[in-house]
Design a protein around this nucleic acid. Sequence first.
DNA 1: GAATAGCCCGTCTTACATCA
DNA 2: CTGATGTAAGACGGGCTATT
Length: 212
Amino acid sequence: MTNSMDHSQVEDEMVLISRFYPGIYSQLVPQQGEAKPRRRKKKSKGEGSSGGGLLRKRKLSEEQANQLEMSFGNEHKLEAERKDKLASELGLDPRQVAVWFQNRRARWRSKKMEEEYSKLKNEHETTVVEKCRLETEVLKLKEQLSDAEKEIQRMLERCDGISSNSPSSSFSMEAMGPPFVGEFGMEGFENIFNVPENNYINHGMDWVDLYM
DNA sequence: GAATAGCCCGTCTTACATCA
DNA sequence: CTGATGTAAGACGGGCTATT
């Protein structure tokens, strides 16, 4: 990025530009403290009809940029009437205003996309963590269920042994109280064991099947 | 169907800031 | 101080669509 043009070259160019683009000449005249315009290089894939390869770019003043920003804030779309009004108010070429709005819309959309992506990414991460937590919980519950089943099996075997050896035994499931609640860390599941009394034994331990 | 205008997208170019 | 590099912003060309 070197600027090899000297003052006189720049002035020659201004004259050229003023001839071809009288409407924007004022935009190209360097103002105090502002960088001088430079020649726009030729594009590799053919020249357009409007540019002619000459520079037409100049940084907008703070005031111009602010006004355009305000206008964009009110409405992203630019009707022809508003474009001309803004252009004359700001001393810009209507084409410049149109281009500014096009670029501003493009960059706004791009920013929106970035924000949306970031939001979705966060949501995804939260969901993955929650999925992990739930899977861990499922594993834990499966383990508890397996332990409970083993315990039931042990008790059934013990029951069988007692009843066959001593039919008149005083052993009764009722004596055990509510079945296993708390013993396997199943707090919170008390209600599912809230089976009508005598249902466990009187119906041949059918209650067990209810929860298998 | 041709001409025109406006928009979007991709790209080029420039201005400016930062860093080694 | 200087050159390299990155980034934001102004500008353009071409394709597409709606309107006249």
